[in-house]
Design a protein around this nucleic acid. Structure first.
Lengths: 336, 336
DNA sequence: CTGAAAGCGCTAACAT
DNA sequence: ATGTTAGCGCTTTCAG
């Protein structure tokens, strides 16, 4: 037992009267060890309170037993659901997941990502915030597989796992148009965000397919908070020709719009992208573009693990995860 | 450049024509290096695409630059908010947070926790699921500080950071009693969970303080899902003598109870422990026992960092984080 | 089946 | 201000 206070394999070997290598074999459950010796080693390890130093092990063996997940927002349930699913896959293979978050800051993303590389993670799942990812190119070439999630990456050849943003929005709008709605408001977050570009394109496509065009006067962008969406919706409802339907391009917009609609007791159809907690409790029947976030995380982790085993398996691919339209909320009857 | 494909400090040193140690100094930003040499080293490092191996560094130096967070449920926003706050503190000090989750399984918790110890984390934040934590005693004594979060730990001397569960419940009940309510339903999750024991005790204390006793006929336990709570609430509302108020001991119960109340359009006061997303959108005015989850995470991380610096600072303590009663939801006027 | 020696990539402790 | 040497704790040869 050294100054560090922590027993090492050398200490265990000395105590058990065997060589270092035998301890290593026993600790790692390798075969071809005499049961009697193994028992002695186990007993010594137990007695001394030995715990193998995983850092030293992977330094020497070059094995990588952690995955890194760089989220864009730690408190966003969407990303955390993904992380949970990815973590489960990793733990199922005896690995662990380090979760970090850029909090939507490109510089932070870069720092955290390179930091994880210095920790020699086996692979990275990244929700990209940075506009350019050439800084990762070298790492990828040196054998750290990277999967980009939810948003595409630029300046780098890597796997991407995205939602079918365009198809989901198109389906929602097609349904509203089929129901006869023409004056359909659209609430968007920052219009340069990838998902917004795609969802807006889906809206356009649905209108085009119906031989119609979007009424730009009721398209509102930069709805980054529910509050902004609520105010915009309130204004739309109070206008001379209020829309008969609204499409909210993310759940924050949906929540804000709903607050306005409920407060004004307006008769308006609502479809929104992204489900949210308590959507079933909303006092209106609404339609939601839903998807399986956990599936996204599972697929990302599995893709990573596969790339770790077989780096040059197939070309990097972009996978689009399908969405589906579901009912949420319920009509509330008048009180008293 | 070796077979591994990754350049090491030795490679950089050779390229720059300096010694290994000089490279180390430059890479780590240590003083007393001739600017000219430093520039040469930086250039070589850049050229070769050198990235310091953090594993090797901390193996040699014995420094610990990750913290471990063992959650009980990855998709629970409460724990993730805590993790986000703890992560921010860690990153602010150049460390990172490894997040794992026991998913409420004691054996998994043990495995993950010991695994993190083998990775030589600097400290651990644990939401305990296991009934006994003597298995961590040895690690704590060897210098890995552990902070238990949200629930107390047994069989071990360590810091605990808990919510004032009892006080929060007592305040909610005191308010209902002061408003004249007497027949107050109580919806509890599994009654042997620590938080439930405490919150229930708070309920009892409020009744006792008012010289009254809890009406056990309207106390329902084992409400683990919103569905269960909804069914229980529906039954209570349909009974001969329905309660005039209900206290829900966690947000899942609150959500389920609300569904039943809204569906039945019942006139009943509701107070619930834990805020939840969209609580402001609920079509009833309700009262919530709220608290600052982020503060819990920040305090946990800071406590850990302090213990890392000064292991024998003060005795392990139990901190109770205060709660407050807030208004949520809004009355919805009848439609049409 | 077991062991001795070498070394993963880095930093600490000492030179110089 | 720079370099040399040793060694963190483990796994990987390679020899018995």
């Amino acid at each position: 037992m050294r100054k560090s206070g922590r027993p090492t394999m050398v200490d265990v070997a000395a105590d058990a009267g065997v060589s270092l290598k035998t301890v290593s074999r026993v600790v790692n459950g390798q075969p071809h060890v005499d049961p009697a010796l193994a028992a002695r080693v186990t007993a010594s390890a137990e007695k001394l309170g030995f715990h193998r130093n995983a850092l030293a092990a992977s330094l020497r063996s070059g094995s990588r037993d952690t995955l890194g997940f760089v989220s864009a927002d730690l408190t966003n349930t969407f990303y955390m659901t993904i992380a949970a699913a990815a973590s489960a896959v990793a733990v199922g293979r005896g690995m662990q997941l380090i979760i970090a978050s850029s909090e939507e800051d490109a510089a932070t993303e870069r720092t955290l990502t390179l930091d994880l590389c210095q920790r020699r993670v086996g692979g990275l799942i990244v929700v990209p915030t940075a506009a350019d990812h050439t800084y990762l190119q070298a790492e990828v070439q040196r054998g750290t597989p990277v999967v980009f999630l939810d948003r595409p990456a630029r300046g780098i050849q890597a796997d991407e796992l995205l939602l079918d943003n365009r198809g989901g929005a198109r389906a929602a709008l097609a349904e509203l148009l089929a129901a006869g709605h023409r004056r359909i408001a659209v609430l968007l977050d920052k219009p340069d965000i990838f998902t917004m570009v795609e969802r807006r394109a889906g809206v356009e496509e649905a209108f085009a397919a119906a031989g119609l065009t979007v009424d730009e006067r009721v398209v509102v962008a930069d709805m980054h908070t529910p509050q902004a969406a609520r105010e915009a919706m309130t204004r739309l409802l109070a206008s001379a020709e209020p829309p008969t339907a609204v499409f909210c391009a993310n759940n924050r917009s949906t929540i804000g719009a709903l607050e306005a609609i409920v407060a004004a007791d307006a008769d308006i159809a609502l479809s929104g992208f992204d489900d949210f907690e308590l959507s079933r409790l909303v006092p209106r029947r609404i339609r939601i573009v839903d998807y399986d976030a956990g599936e996204l995380g599972r697929r990302a982790a599995e893709l990573l693990l596969q790339r770790m085993v077989d780096p040059d398996g197939v070309e990097p691919t972009t996978v689009l995860l399908p969405t589906r339209l579901v009912d949420r909320g319920r009509e509330v009857r008048p009180r008293g």
